[in-house]
Simulated scan of single mutants.
Amino acid sequence: MKKTTCAACDCELGADTIKVNLGGKSVEVCCEECAAALKEAGQSTSATSGAKE
Rank of each mutant, 00 (worst) to 15 (best):
M1K: 06
M1C: 10
K2Q: 14
K2S: 15
K2L: 12
K3G: 05
K3L: 10
T4R: 14
T4C: 08
T5N: 10
T5C: 08
C6M: 13
C6N: 12
C6A: 11
A7C: 03
A7I: 01
A8V: 00
C9Q: 11
D10T: 00
D10N: 13
D10F: 06
C11T: 11
C11R: 07
C11P: 00
E12F: 03
L13F: 06
G14E: 04
A15E: 14
A15G: 03
A15S: 09
A15W: 04
A15M: 04
A15Q: 08
D16V: 00
T17N: 10
T17C: 07
I18N: 07
I18D: 06
I18T: 10
K19R: 09
V20L: 02
V20E: 01
N21Q: 09
L22F: 11
L22C: 04
G23F: 12
G23S: 06
G23W: 03
G23L: 08
G23D: 02
G24S: 10
G24L: 09
G24N: 05
K25R: 13
S26E: 13
S26P: 05
V27R: 09
V27P: 05
V27C: 03
E28Y: 03
E28N: 12
V29Y: 00
V29D: 02
V29N: 01
C30I: 01
C30W: 11
C31A: 15
C31G: 11
E32Q: 13
E32I: 09
C34Y: 01
C34A: 04
C34W: 01
C34I: 02
A35L: 02
A36R: 09
A36V: 12
A36W: 00
A37N: 10
A37L: 12
L38P: 01
K39S: 02
K39N: 05
E40W: 05
A41D: 03
G42S: 05
G42M: 02
G42Q: 02
Q43G: 15
S44G: 04
S44I: 05
T45N: 03
T45H: 07
T45P: 01
S46T: 15
A47K: 11
S49Y: 06
S49E: 15
G50D: 09
A51R: 14
A51L: 14
A51S: 14
K52L: 14
K52G: 12
K52M: 12
E53M: 09
E53A: 12
